[in-house]
Write a protein that binds this DNA or RNA. Structure first.
Lengths: 157, 157
DNA sequence: ATCTGATTGCAAGTTTGTTTCATCTGGATG
DNA sequence: CATCCAGATGAAACAAACTTGCAATCAGAT
């Protein structure tokens, strides 16, 4: 559905900046890309309307708010009936500790990224999400020892 | 190093808002949490200084900027010598298409999240990152069919 | 050549962010 | 028990940023 809202070099340059720091004043962005502040503002607004910019958010360090553990989970399901897959999607997405959930091809069906305070909390989560779910055949856990690179930045330009 | 910078209920409430939308005016946040705008502003500043807030960024839709494909990669290395692991971390982190990279325990050593425009581009990436790297024993690819939930939000409070 | 639509920069107007300052609170001290 | 002190707060003034209106510009189509 979303044909590429053709972005020119200005838009890309603006996006590159906003993906690093969206508190950068429009005047500063303007100087960086050779455009006036209002021009920058209108382009940003347009990209927000078109959904190019999905959200503006603060990134929080999980460890600093009591969630020092990041875990990857590969989930394999019993049945891939659309009905059941959709239910699984909704179920996973509804859990706050699940910060990312992807439906994937390959040797697994879902990949989750989970943040928890303790392994006990994770253990409790697995019980709720996997063991009590009849459609989950098995799951594999990967505990992150080092968050080498964490972000949602997309290369542009 | 960073003991928990003890955050009170105000801080948590503010964080919850900023993680959803950091363009929310401080006055509005103040009304939501029953605090004046300057109080909110000081708390935000303090959390930024303490690293609780790691960054303020715009989230862009990868598909809208020509990166419709998201891929997970499990990488297994030959040797876990610290020297080689660090080199691998630096190597992966330096690639713009690698938006996330974690060093993990379990049946793999690294998990990468990659965004690309085409499978051809991914194929080229695998050549550069894996086949030409002697320390990569093997890797497994999972292509995302549905980005069910994507974010870096951490539950607070 | 002219028209049209889109984009721009400037300047004015408005909202938001920031600083100042006096006050208040809770805890430690004499 | 009074005092002091450190930290946090709200009201108001202030500064900075965002937003809008408008005339000028440019490219492509007629």
């Amino acid at each position: 559905m979303p044909a590429l809202p053709n972005l020119d070099a200005f838009d890309c340059a603006i996006l590159a900046i906003l993906q690093k720091d969206n508190t950068t004043p429009q005047r500063t962005i303007g100087e960086a890309v050779n455009l006036s502040a209002p021009a920058v503002q209108r382009r940003i607004k347009r990209m927000e309307e078109r959904g190019v910019i999905r959200a503006n958010v603060a990134l929080v360090d999980p460890a600093k708010v009591g969630h020092p553990i990041t875990i990857f989970v590969e989930v394999e399901v019993e049945s891939e009936r659309a009905e059941l897959i959709d239910a699984a999607k909704r179920g996973f997405a509804a859990v706050p500790e699940v910060q990312q959930c992807y439906y994937v091809t390959g040797e697994a069906d879902f990949i989750l990224v989970v943040t928890v305070a303790t392994m006990a909390e994770y253990e409790a989560l697995t019980r709720r999400l996997f063991f009590e779910n009849n459609n989950v055949k098995r799951f594999r856990t990967f505990v992150a020892m080092d968050r080498v690179k964490v972000g949602l930045e997309v290369p542009v330009g």
